[in-house]
Design a protein around this nucleic acid. Structure first.
Lengths: 243, 243
DNA sequence: GTGCAGAAATTGGTTGGACCATTGAACCAC
DNA sequence: GTGGTTCAATGGTCCAACCAATTTCTGCAC
C-alpha cells in the first residue's frame, strides 16, 4: 500500500489568481515592461477581492517578476509562463566570510559541471567566442596588472552559455552580484585572483580538446585558488580587526 | 561629488514590518519550526493593519522563510536574520524532457560537490543519520520492489545537510518537485531508478571513509544512471506517442 | 495654438471591520 | 481508550472607504 497521500488543496485562491494571470500574459503575449491590468479590474474579472489580487501580486513582486508603481500601475519585469519553476534562495548573512564561502562552494559545483558539459558540447563558434573572451581577459590582465574581474566574468559566462544549459548562467548570474561586491574589496589581499589566472587557459584547452574530465578538474583547481585567496583575506581581516 | 542619492522611502510599511519581525526573531532566538506571533497580535503591536502584516508575511512565505497553516498559526521554516540576501530564481519551462534533463545536470553538479564536501566535514552524528536513512531506503527497496523514491530523497537530503552548506539543500529542494513529479510517471520504464540503487551505498562508504574525490565520482555515476533511465524513458515515450 | 498651473481621475498602499474555513484542544458519552 | 461534539484561536477572504503618488485632462494666460 502506498502510504503517500498528498494533502488535497481546498483553498488556493492566490495561486489560482497567479495561474490565471500567467495565462492572460501568455495569451496577450505581454513582454517585460508592459503594463498589467489594474488590481481593481483583475479583482472584478476574476471575481475575487482586491485583497486577494494584491496578495498574489505581492508574491510575484517578491519573485521579481513584476514591479508595482503607485499611481501608475503594475508592470511586467520578466517573462512569465505557466510552467515556471520558482527557486527562491536566501543567504543568511551573505556579507560575512561564511556566506561568501558557501556561495563559492555552489559556484565550484556549477563551474566544474559547466566546464565538463562545455567540453562535450561546445561547437566551433562557441570555442571561438570563448577564446576571444579569454584573449581579452589575458590582455586586460597584463595591461592593468591583475585587475580583470569584469573580463574574467565574461569568460566564465561564455563557458556557461556554451554548456548548452541556460540554467547554469541563470543561477550563477543571480549570485554574481555577491561575488562582484567582494571582488571590489578583496579584504586587503593585493594580488587577489592572480593565482586563478593560469587556469582559465588550461580550462579552455581542455574544452577545446573535448576533454570533459580534464575541464572539470581544472575548474576545480581554479575555484580552489580563489577559495585560498578568500581564506587569506579572512585571516588578514581578523588580524587588523583585532579587538 | 557623489551623484548617488537614494530616493527617500516615504512608504515601505511591509518592509518595515519584515525588518521588525526579523529583529524579533533574532531577539527571541526563534528557530525553524517555532511559531511566530499571530497576525492579529503583530498588527496590534506594530500599529499597522492586519492586511499590511499579511502582505509582509506573504512575501516571506513566497521566499520559503515561513509557513502558514490556517487555524494553527505561522511557523518559521528557515533561519532568518537582518542581513539576509534574497535571490529568487524563476526558471521557465521545466516540464518537458529537455527541461528535466537540464535540471538533472544541475543536480549532478550539486550532488557531486555536496557528496565531496560531506566526505570532508561529516561528523559522527551526521554519518549515523545518513546511514540510518540509507538502511531505511534499502529496506524499502527490498520490501516494495524498487519503489523507494521517498526514502531515496531523504537519503540525499541527509547528505546535503551534512555538507555544512544549507544552500545545497535549498537549491535542490526547490527542484525536487520536478523530479518527484517525474518519479511518479517513469515514462513506462518499469525498473526506473533500480540502476542507481547500489551507488547510494558506495557514496556512503566514501563519505564514511572521508574520501571526497571518491564520493564525488560515485555521485557522478549515480546521476549518470538516472540520466540513462531518463533517456530510455524518453525513447519509449516517443515510440508510443508516434503520430 | 502654446505653455503651464491646477483640478480631476487613475492607481497602488493602507486601514478597520466583518465573516468564513480550518485547526486543535477540551470535553463528553460510550 | 475511542469516537464525536463543542468551542476558541488562527489564517483566508471579502468589503468599503480613504490615503498617496502618478497621470491625464482642463482651462486660463499669452
Amino acid at each position: 500500500m502506498t502510504d503517500f497521500l498528498p494533502p488535497i488543496q481546498t483553498t488556493a485562491r492566490d495561486d489560482a489568481v497567479l495561474k490565471a494571470l500567467a495565462g492572460f500574459v501568455m495569451q496577450e503575449k505581454l513582454e517585460p515592461g508592459e503594463k498589467l491590468p489594474t488590481e481593481r479590474i483583475l479583482a472584478e474579472r476574476l471575481k475575487v477581492s482586491r485583497n486577494t489580487v494584491r496578495e498574489a501580486l505581492t508574491r510575484w513582486e517578491g519573485l521579481g517578476l513584476v514591479e508595482r508603481r503607485q499611481g501608475s500601475g503594475t508592470y511586467l519585469k520578466a517573462a512569465v509562463s505557466l510552467d515556471m519553476l520558482h527557486m527562491p534562495l536566501t543567504l543568511a548573512g551573505g556579507n560575512d566570510f561564511t556566506g561568501l564561502m558557501r556561495t563559492l562552494e555552489i559556484r565550484r559545483a556549477l563551474e566544474a559541471e559547466a566546464a565538463a558539459l562545455c567540453a562535450i558540447r561546445a561547437g566551433k563558434a562557441d570555442l571561438a567566442e570563448i577564446e576571444r573572451k579569454l584573449d581579452i581577459m589575458e590582455e586586460a590582465f597584463q595591461t592593468r596588472a591583475g585587475m580583470s574581474s569584469e573580463e574574467d566574468w565574461e569568460f566564465h559566462q561564455a563557458v556557461y552559455r556554451a554548456s548548452g544549459n541556460p540554467l547554469f548562467e541563470q543561477i550563477i548570474s543571480a549570485m554574481h552580484e555577491l561575488f562582484h561586491r567582494f571582488w571590489e574589496h578583496p579584504l586587503g589581499v593585493r594580488d587577489f585572483g592572480h593565482a586563478s589566472f593560469p587556469y582559465h587557459r588550461t580550462i579552455f584547452n581542455c574544452i577545446a580538446a573535448h576533454d570533459p574530465e580534464g575541464a572539470r578538474a581544472e575548474a576545480l583547481k581554479l575555484i580552489a585558488t580563489v577559495e585560498n585567496d578568500l581564506k587569506r583575506g579572512a585571516a588578514n581581516l581578523k588580524l587588523s580587526d583585532r579587538k
